[in-house]
């Protein structure tokens, strides 16, 4: 037996891993061969395992503890926050393009968009071509009846304060300026009894973008970033924290995803 066969057990990672069953099979055989000739190491391993079992038994007593309601509530809250964190990461992270590719059917019944979608589809192919824009103008007129206030682009700080007050939560400006868009106006409309903050943007090429935000309240969040096409426009929609968001633009999925990411930033 050599001197190295009697290493200090405390400094032998193989022995420690063997005691915990964390050693690869071939190394395990080596350790077992050594233990056969080293009673001190054998005793150390046996006692480590025994103490480990006792501590594990004491820890398992925690499973018999009654449910702690405060812990359960905090656990739910943390799950919500982490879910939100995951969604943000999906919006800003490398998975962005992949997510944008998963186009889904835009669910009807959410906000004023559903009105336009349903009504314009109903007339498509039934009447002469000029009827559809006429009806769109009519629906826009009906929609304007639900408008509560409008602010020009140069009054955005005032608009954001007022919108935040009306929606009883802080509303931040969509940051589309970094993408070359300039805010034209902001308004508050009522859709399905809920306030909807709407921002209108335009870039130097005349391309228009509409962004909306509405409180989610108890409604379930939209999972991930979703997209749908209708009437030549493309809409992206998602939930983040207490708000539902939507962005409408005539652009590619990647372009719309960039717009959504800028709104969220």
């Amino acid at each position: 037996m050599t001197q190295s066969d009697h290493r200090d057990p405390a400094l032998d990672p193989d022995l420690i891993a063997y005691a915990d069953g964390a050693l690869e099979p071939e190394r395990m055989a080596e350790v077992e061969a050594r233990l056969a000739h080293d009673p001190a190491a054998r005793e150390a391993v046996a006692q480590w395992r025994h103490f480990d079992n006792l501590i594990n038994t004491a820890a398992r007593a925690g499973d018999a503890q009654p449910t702690n309601l405060r812990i359960a509530a905090l656990e739910r809250e943390l799950a919500t926050r982490l879910q939100r964190r995951r969604m943000r990461a999906a919006l800003f992270g490398p998975g962005l393009r992949r997510l944008a590719a998963s186009v889904v059917i835009f669910a009807a019944g959410w906000g004023a968009h559903s009105v336009y979608e349903t009504q314009t589809k109903r007339v498509a192919g039934t009447y002469p071509g000029f009827i559809q824009p006429t009806l769109s103008g009519h629906y826009a007129y009906l929609h304007s009846a639900h408008q509560r206030a409008e602010f020009s682009g140069d009054r955005m700080p005032e608009a954001l304060d007022w919108l935040s007050e009306q929606m009883q939560m802080r509303i931040e400006s969509p940051k589309l300026e970094r993408l070359g868009y300039e805010v034209q106006s902001a308004r508050l409309v009522m859709a399905g009894g809920q306030p909807l903050a709407v921002f209108y943007y335009r870039n130097a090429d005349g391309e228009q973008v509409t962004v909306s935000m509405t409180p989610r309240h108890e409604a379930p969040p939209v999972q991930g970033l979703r997209m749908a096409d209708f009437e030549g426009e493309r809409v992206a929609y998602w939930s983040s924290g207490p708000l539902h968001y939507a962005v409408v633009a005539r652009t590619s999925a990647a372009g719309l995803t960039s717009l959504a990411a800028a709104v969220e930033d």
Partner: peptide, 16 residues
């Protein structure tokens, strides 16, 4: 509980 309260406050630092 204290751990979960801190985790909630730090949720934005968690790397999905």
């Amino acid at each position: 509980q204290e751990t979960l309260v801190k985790a909630i406050a730090k949720a934005d630092t968690f790397q999905p």
